[in-house]
Design a binder for these strands. Structure first.
Lengths: 347, 347
DNA sequence: TTGTACGCGTTATCAC
DNA sequence: GTGATAACGCGTACAA
């Protein structure tokens, strides 16, 4: 029976352990806490640990938090966990935080500022030790609000313009340049861009990356070939693509700001019987799950969302260890994945 | 400045509110708590509420929880949030719980029993008021363990054999029958089944549904045409499909236990130049995101995971309100979505 | 109707 | 090295 865990439904507290080990609760607390264990006699400590093990003692983080003003909990705000971009980010955050004993507390904001406010206030009430958010747009007051409240803040996936705010994102600019360079190298001259909303750093930076890469490729971007869609969705992507084609600018390739927008383009190709990549090439961004199963398999930019999540968690741990440490911004290097939606221009 | 929220970084406590309203903390507590408000003078209550508002008071759930032994927090265990099946379930759970003031606390177990144990123990330590888990297999001791610990438990997506455990799942049996009936109605006689692991109720029930529907369609299931794959994955689906074909049973259609398995079949079709649905039809299960974008678009069974999540949350709230209420099991009606991976048998 | 006093489970600060 | 005690913020008997 030794080693058998007790399955008492009544919670066993520090007092119970202390009593079993025949020491004072204060001593038991020190013995159980790795940082203070050195203050207590080795032998006594062992006795306490054994008693704790035997009774199946689990320290009560609530009581601990009341005393220490820490909850070992980090609030994580995402627009919508249903968007396949976020689950791997969340896992990265969770896995890394867990190593240091922190637990994430997630909420979906649906890209609604007011909802985001409510959510982070709720989290604040729940005594989270910090907030990681993927919901901020470039000028979002939420960043300032949270910082002003004294809570450590880390942005993930999207940055805010202020470089003093910690952030872990893919290098959106470099990623889009990869895509455009690829199209240029295939021989395209009339390259269009369907951007995401410029309020988001992702949309903004990819747009900039597009312009840069074009110029470096010796191509002056044609304003007729640049459309900013209203959202990173298949629907808005399709709408933007239709307008692009209706303008008749003669594009032979499209650099889309994300995979869903690219998918919207696919829909329009079907509507208008356009051959991809024969008549028109498309590149996406994110390499979302199953991008390789689309028809045609989508050429896109892979961003490693899991690693982005891990990086965000690391920035948070940094801020937690030393709140006055210099805020860093991490940008992860993306990678081009060439599949079958891009080819040489027609003719 | 009235109505302006204070942005003090020092937390404001019940005491501060009481002082501002010139009452004792006890009174303030009663005024702030909806259930005890009636015990206090209407006017005084208003004064307290105004003070709380003005100071931006947020009750500390940690302190409250210490006193009341409730955290208003529900632990949610999923195998892997990265599996597209789970995000909508999670959102359903979150949205419904939120209405009643509860917050979910999620953890990924990677289908590892030991990890699940650790996770729920951690959650127990964090004083969650209940556990919703999507990780249980049919004979999983975790269900008994959690119940024994006195924590309300609800299973989601997967059941456990014991009907005394609350569960919200799709009606897997009925769903698979829908798929098989569809294939029968197309004229197929040699219908194969690639099942998921029978340890999971999902794999088990769909397998049963397959057998039932076959017999009702007047077809005796051929053991040669039934293969149970080792996991609900594309890879294992492909492996199973290869074995099925190698057996040479002459199947003209496959009822796959989920969409990923069906996708594995697609891979094998490509390897062996099999035309789908010309030579071989396939039906999946779940209607996962982008199932309509596969090549060919996948005929599958839609299960409404969001609603499954909502139902699970509702069962939990029920258990919370009345721990002795009769445990219910909810099975949501699935729906067949016919696309292009199924057609009449060849010849 | 309101004030008082205690306790929830822990940790920190003292003494010893 | 260990024990006693107070305190974290709140809820709630009980007293007034």
């Amino acid at each position: 029976m030794a080693g058998q865990r007790e399955m008492t439904s009544a919670r066993v507290t520090l007092r119970d352990v202390a009593r079993a080990a025949d020491v004072h609760p204060g001593t038991a607390s020190r013995a159980l806490n790795a940082e203070t264990r050195s203050l207590v006699n080795e032998e006594t400590a062992q006795r306490v640990l054994r008693a704790a093990e035997q009774l199946g003692y689990l320290p009560n983080p609530i009581a601990r938090g009341l005393k220490t003003n820490r909850s070992y909990t980090i609030g994580v705000l995402v627009p919508d966990i249903t968007n396949p971009l976020f689950p791997p980010i969340l896992r990265g955050i969770e896995d890394r935080l867990e190593e240091d004993g922190y637990t994430p507390l997630m909420a979906n904001t649906d890209n609604d500022r007011e909802r985001a406010r409510i959510d982070w206030q709720t989290m604040r009430a729940r005594q989270v030790d910090g907030i990681i958010t993927a919901t901020a747009d470039r000028t979002d007051p939420i960043a300032e609000e949270i910082t002003d409240s004294g809570l450590p803040l880390v942005l993930v996936n999207r940055r805010v313009d202020d470089p003093a705010v910690r952030a872990a994102t893919p290098d959106d600019r470099a990623g889009m340049r990869l895509a455009v360079e690829h199209l240029v190298s295939l021989g395209h001259h009339r390259i269009a861009h369907i951007g995401g909303p410029l309020e988001f750093s992702s949309g903004h930076d990819r747009h900039e990356g597009f312009l840069e890469a074009m110029r470096e490729g010796g191509l002056e971007p044609d304003p007729d070939l640049v459309i900013i869609s209203k959202a990173f969705t298949e629907l808005e992507g399709a709408t933007a693509c239709r307008e692009l084609l209706d303008r008749g600018g003669g594009a032979t390739a499209i650099a889309a700001s994300n995979d869903l927008i690219a998918l919207g383009c696919y829909d329009v190709f079907l509507e208008r019987s356009i051959d991809c990549p024969g008549q028109l090439s498309v590149a996406g961004f994110n390499d979302m799950p199953f991008a390789d199963r689309f028809q045609p398999p989508l050429t896109t930019v892979r961003i490693r969302p899991y690693e982005v999540g891990v990086a965000a968690a690391e920035l948070m741990l940094e801020a937690l260890r030393d709140p006055d440490s210099e805020p860093r911004q991490v940008q992860l290097r993306p990678e081009l994945v060439v599949r079958e939606s891009t080819g040489p221009p027609p003719g």
